[in-house]
Computed example of a mutant assay.
Amino acid sequence: MTAHDRPIRTVLVGFGHGGRVFHAPLIEHDPRFDLAVVVTPSPDRRQAARAAYPHAVVVGTLHEALQAVPDLDLAVLSTPNPTHAPLAGEAIGRGLHVVADKPFVVRSDDGERLISAARAADRLLVPFHNRRWDGDFLAVRSMVEPGSLGRIRIFESALESWKPSITKQWKREAGAGDGGGVLYDLGPHLIDQALTLFGPAVPVFADLRMDREGARADDAFFLVLQHRDGITSHLHAGTLVPLARPRFRVTGEAAALTVTGTDPQEELLAAGVLPGDIPGRAADDADLARGLLVRNGHAEPFAVGPGTYTGFYAGVAAAIRGSGPAPVSTEDALAVVRIIEQVHTAFPARRTR
């Protein structure tokens, strides 16, 4: 077996919700990868990782992982936001490709340094903007890009939920300077989707709220982006919302659409459904008709598929083996981080209680 054909030896750094629910199952699902090492400082999570992936070495630090398995190819980072830049730099310095959770950095100057380091080392640095593979976003994209709605006027996108308690300690304690708050958490998804559809944009208004008593960073935001050709994006996110807005609402000159509810992939993965079984499970869901297209006063429901998070790691494998581009570019992710920095500078979060 040549180096090109052997599985991509992967170390997963972090086994919290992101590592356990998203990355580990997706890596394990793709035969082009070998989940060789899991890194987590938590004894309980190390025990859970050994139970779920008995073939993997489980250690407490990235340094230990590199010592235990010296022929690693890829580091996947699913750790608190402020750790992404130093961990990515360490991995690149040791000759590994890197996949980094969103936001791939907290500060854009760190991102610029990492991009330069990855290029100099001829290593891939791939941001994990997985919601490009949400079924609802793919459905919207399939109607927007061919011009089915006519010239787009307003794109509205929301990720809202009711989560009165913050379970992760680092999220409770982190301020905006440490990558804390909803703008750094959910904002990368919403901003990236808007830029993917409509190209570069500038923030022209934002309302960042700190609604929780004693909050260190924003709990909710409303952000307005201005794209070229007069297209405006209205982005909403919050974790204290009893009744969520539609996931998408897109208004064009010829037609408009809405999508309600959320992509089921995360929920199914969290329930232990294997990635390969998700399309069938989602097809059994009677709630697939979450879309509504309105043209000339006539409303027509349309089905929204489950999406394909597996496509992200398929793209990573192709890029590492030289048969395709990275599934998400660092330049795209850096544009997202720059917008977040601009918003925090121009529209500081306001405390509401």
Rank of each mutant, 00 (worst) to 15 (best):
14 G>T: 00
207 D>V: 11
275 P>R: 06
294 V>L: 11
48 A>W: 03
139 A>Q: 01
290 R>K: 14
3 A>R: 11
251 T>V: 15
351 R>D: 08
52 A>D: 10
332 D>F: 00
305 G>Y: 02
76 V>E: 11
95 G>S: 10
257 L>F: 05
232 T>G: 01
117 A>R: 15
16 G>K: 04
111 G>E: 04
13 V>N: 03
138 L>F: 02
161 S>W: 12
251 T>F: 11
138 L>H: 05
283 A>H: 09
271 A>Q: 13
212 R>P: 00
185 D>Q: 11
233 S>C: 04
93 G>L: 11
329 S>T: 15
309 Y>N: 03
73 D>F: 09
41 P>W: 12
66 L>I: 15
9 R>I: 00
87 L>Y: 11
352 T>Q: 12
163 K>V: 12
5 D>F: 02
111 G>Y: 10
176 A>P: 15
26 L>F: 10
11 V>Q: 00
37 V>C: 10
73 D>V: 07
115 I>T: 14
168 K>Q: 12
290 R>M: 12
306 P>T: 11
113 R>G: 12
162 W>D: 13
28 E>V: 11
42 S>Q: 04
63 H>K: 14
318 A>L: 08
83 T>P: 01
121 A>P: 09
295 R>M: 03
35 L>Q: 01
194 A>Y: 00
122 D>K: 15
338 R>F: 04
301 P>G: 01
161 S>Y: 12
128 F>V: 01
115 I>S: 13
208 L>V: 06
323 S>A: 14
11 V>S: 01
258 T>P: 09
247 R>A: 12
204 V>N: 02
280 G>D: 09
114 L>H: 05
162 W>H: 14
54 P>E: 11
98 V>W: 01
200 P>D: 13
43 P>R: 10
141 R>N: 02
266 E>I: 07
212 R>S: 08
147 G>Q: 13
170 W>D: 14
181 G>W: 10
264 P>W: 03
256 A>G: 14
47 Q>H: 15
23 H>W: 11
203 P>V: 10
280 G>I: 05
224 V>F: 02
282 A>F: 06
143 M>H: 14
81 N>Y: 09
32 R>P: 03
253 E>G: 07
1 M>S: 11
115 I>R: 13
105 V>E: 02
156 E>Y: 08
